[in-house]
């Protein structure tokens, strides 16, 4: 079978579909001081999954506020700096008006995913940490 690390080089999704790949990518991102990009991407996916689970509206609101406070509110954070102002203000409105929608972070996740696909992921595939691993 194809070794996992070869599959990781096929696409960002194939990398993020494997725990060992995620671990190695996170180690690389931490070296680049931008591990929040990956955590935010997973937090958005986890938030969307809540809809399918029987979790309370209160917990959804608490989580939406936690994601907003940790990754978007602080304009100096790596995630906040990469998301478009219009996307940030949409999320702020949702949190302030308590309009907690499962898809409220989708656009922000897409923008961060595009950044990773076009920038950090290709650099990771050329990084020492990945080449040493392979």
């Amino acid at each position: 079978p194809t070794p996992p690390y070869v599959k990781w080089a096929e696409s960002l999704h194939s990398l993020l579909d494997d725990q060992d790949g995620i671990q190695l990518f996170r180690t690389f991102l931490r070296q680049e001081d931008c591990a929040d990009l990956l955590d935010f991407w997973f937090a958005c996916s986890g938030f969307r999954k809540l809809e399918a689970s029987e979790c309370s509206e209160e917990k959804k609101l608490k989580l939406a506020k936690a994601i907003y406070k940790k990754y978007i509110l602080d304009n100096n954070g790596i995630v906040s700096r990469q998301i478009k102002p219009a996307t940030k203000s949409f999320i702020k409105d949702c949190v302030m008006k308590l309009h907690i929608d499962p898809a409220m972070f989708d656009q922000a996740q897409t923008e961060i995913q595009t950044l990773m696909e076009e920038n950090t992921y290709p650099v990771f595939l050329k990084s020492d940490i990945y080449l040493e691993y392979t």
């Binding site: 993020l16 579909d17 494997d18 725990q19 995620i22 955590d39 997973f42 937090a43 996916s45 986890g46 938030f47 999954k49 809540l50 917990k59 608490k62 989580l63 506020k65 936690a66 994601i67 406070k69 940790k70």
Partner: peptide
């Protein structure tokens, strides 16, 4: 703050793929 960080961590972990 702890409970917010715990909530975030739980959310991030819930989106992770299961160990193959």
């Amino acid at each position: 703050i702890d409970s917010e960080d715990d909530l975030l961590q739980e959310c991030i972990s819930s989106a992770m793929p299961k160990k193959k």
